[in-house]
Design a protein around this nucleic acid. Structure first.
Length: 257
DNA sequence: AGAACCGCCTGCTTGC
DNA sequence: TGCAAGCAGGCGGTTC
């Protein structure tokens, strides 16, 4: 599941690989992605991440916005062969970018580019005061809050579990039950975990691969996610799995309080 | 406001 | 071994 670090990894690679290049053509292999605006002949100015969305800006003021959802991947390929589960392709003189997505949840939008202000992305710009004023008193569970894209951009299930584990905060705590120290810990650890995951080029648990098809290395850093029944590395307790909003949460009942 | 559920999907795992 | 059911989940939507 591509979250912030995986999308950031792709965006950096894309920026290096395709910025300044001209799109020679595109091809659609999935009816769900029909009716996209024609971008043949447009030139790529910049590739940016917005939350978990990849934004490929074009020289005509529009941008190609790709959201990979669950199993989406982007792959740079210079050979002709079309990878399995290809849904869409953008051709360049020296190669092509494929959108590969077995489960077909990924979305592409081509629309006017808007330079809206980012204030909820922990690695770009984060309005801490506003955040606390708006969310500090909420009665919702902290895990769900961290995963709400309108509240904090880019964090999904894996990193939400890891952040709370490192903080020693129980995922079912409500936002209003947290004090200033707890919040500071959350922001600090969230940044550190996301940053480390970017350095490791993402978490390859199942599908995730980078633009060149390489696995990331951050799966070796996971302390909670996917470790149900295993020993907590901090306290020796047993990692537990619960459901929150239909999604698995992994945590240590002994040291997350 | 917040939680619970659905639909979108298909590959993988599980159970008989 | 084979087949069907169950499961996984980000996000947008609806409903309670």
């Amino acid at each position: 599941m591509p979250e912030l670090p995986e999308v950031e990894t792709l965006c950096r690679q894309l920026q290096t690989r395709i910025a300044g290049k001209k799109i020679s053509s595109t091809e659609v292999y999935d009816v769900k992605l029909n009716n996209l605006k024609n971008i043949q002949g447009k030139r790529i100015t910049e590739v940016k991440r917005k939350g978990k969305t990849i934004e490929i800006n074009l020289d005509d003021g529009t941008s190609v916005q790709i959201h990979l959802r669950m199993t989406g991947r982007l792959l740079w390929q210079s050979e002709k062969e079309r990878p399995k589960h290809s849904r869409w392709k953008m051709n360049f003189k020296d190669g092509a970018i494929y959108l590969i997505d077995p489960r077909r949840f990924a979305t592409i939008k081509i629309q006017k580019w808007e330079n809206d202000k980012v204030d909820n992305d922990l690695l770009v710009s984060f309005a801490r005061e506003d955040f606390l004023a708006k969310n500090g008193g909420r009665k919702g569970k902290i895990k769900n809050l961290l995963m709400d894209q309108n509240t904090v951009a880019g964090i999904g299930n894996i990193y939400a579990c890891e952040i709370l584990y490192r903080c020693g905060i129980h995922p079912e705590r409500t936002a209003e039950s947290l004090n200033v120290k707890d919040w500071q810990l959350i922001f600090k650890n969230a940044r550190a975990i996301l940053q480390k995951a970017i350095e490791n080029r993402g978490t390859s648990i199942s599908d995730w691969r980078d633009l060149d098809g390489h696995k990331g290395e951050n799966q070796h850093e996971l302390k909670a996610y996917g470790r149900e029944g295993k020993q907590c590395r901090k306290c020796g307790g047993i990692i537990k799995r619960i459901k929150q909003g239909g999604r698995s949460t992994f945590y240590c009942p002994q040291c997350q309080t």
